[in-house]
Nucleic acid binder design. Sequence first.
DNA 1: CGGAATCCCACAGGATACTG
DNA 2: CAGTATCCTGTGGGATTCCG
Lengths: 118, 118
Amino acid sequence: MLKTKKRYDCAAGCPVEVTLDLIDGKWKGVIVYHLLSGTLRFNEIRRKLPSATQRMLTRQLRELEECGLVLRTVYAQVPPRVDYALTEEGRSLEEIVRAMHAWGERRLERLAQVQAAA
Amino acid sequence: MLKTKKRYDCAAGCPVEVTLDLIDGKWKGVIVYHLLSGTLRFNEIRRKLPSATQRMLTRQLRELEECGLVLRTVYAQVPPRVDYALTEEGRSLEEIVRAMHAWGERRLERLAQVQAAA
DNA sequence: CGGAATCCCACAGGATACTG
DNA sequence: CAGTATCCTGTGGGATTCCG
């Protein structure tokens, strides 16, 4: 997922994969979603994603940083403090991420209805 | 990815993951993208995704079918013929997928510029 | 033509423990 | 607080072969 995984040498549809590559990976999508609301410290993000392990969070955040979607700011102080914020490019994902959020909600509603019917 | 992988029991951001779950997975995004243009036969899809293996394509298509995003139609004839089309729900992803496509293209342009600078 | 069956491996991701 | 460091497992995904 990170580095040169070069999933695509394929035909015309690949920009879709370019985007997916950056945003897929278990937690990245949600992280970006939460960062849309503003800068967050590491543990704040953790609290928003209770079922993500610490290790996974740091890794996903680092990958997001690597692709230039997230800005990581370390304050030289004790106890440590690290802020995560979207970069300009990261924020440019807003439309997509919000759309995914809305779609996901509708999907959940639909599923709930199907459940209810049974 | 298929079945009840239930990635999320998490907090508020999860609908994002719901969506990602359906559309991630190496080829699903691109498949949906191509199906936006209309129904395709198996080998037509293959031709659009040269670097996807046959096995992967069928698997991803089946998963898409399972989630109700893609409709698979088998014609009882020899040689066989199988059509793949988006369901209503699948087509409702259009906005997202197109947005991802557009974003990916811009991303590629940006990367190209950075390359050129170096 | 549109697969299914097998074999195989890298690595995403979890659990747990330690640290400046 | 915000991480590393290890160890371990599942499975996503590739390659290849066979089939109605």
